[in-house]
Amino acid sequence: MGLMVDEKDVVLPGQIIAEGMDFLPAMNTYRDENNIVSTRIGFIKMSGRSINVIPLSGPYIPKVGDTVIGRVSNIGLSSWSVNVGYAYEAALSLKDATSEYIQRGSDLSQYYDIGDFVVAKIINVTKMKFMDLTTKGPGLRKLNGGLLVKVTPSKVPRVIGKQGSMISVVKNATNTRIIVGQNGWVWIQGENPEDVKKAAEALLMIDQQAISEGLTDRIEKFLGGKKNDNNNIQEEI
């Protein structure tokens, strides 16, 4: 009776998490008569009496308000298509792309060309997952240069850490600029290619060891202590 696993335990699809009516199924769980069952591989996170399973794998599911990194894949008459790591592309329409005045019929590729990477915010998602993006807003822009790495989308909160604690460790130790998109695409830029490489390795390490304890310390150790304490580059997303 009651809870059959502990907080942070890894559960599998079909695994019974709790028996009885004392708990409520929330994220990635369902009630099967008396039992609460997981539908994903993930770890348990309780919030009061609700049981959540935070997945450890899986695709990105777009949500309104997410800041994502995307790649411009097509240019239309008055919009761009942007690949944000979902099955279908997001639309970035002219009016949401820039506050500049754009002449009718002008060449849109001078703003965002095919292959360009952008940081954008999702402003609308339909039930069918049609997405609208905007690049108007603080921190939203085209990305020039840098390196893109991909982490598991569900582990993005771990990559960022509480109030950005994890990501600032990586940023400070490697002296790089890092933008983490909610879709798991991470952009790294730095003066020194070695530092960028080190930061990318650290990010992949966080991705792999997301559920282990004392990870921040291990990342600090891996990066060889803090290189630049009073780093003035602050780019929280």
Partner: peptide, 11 residues
């Protein structure tokens, strides 16, 4: 399918 993160009621 479980590895890919597709929701499954049971295996």
């Amino acid at each position: 399918l479980a590895d890919a993160g597709i929701n499954m009621k049971e295996m």
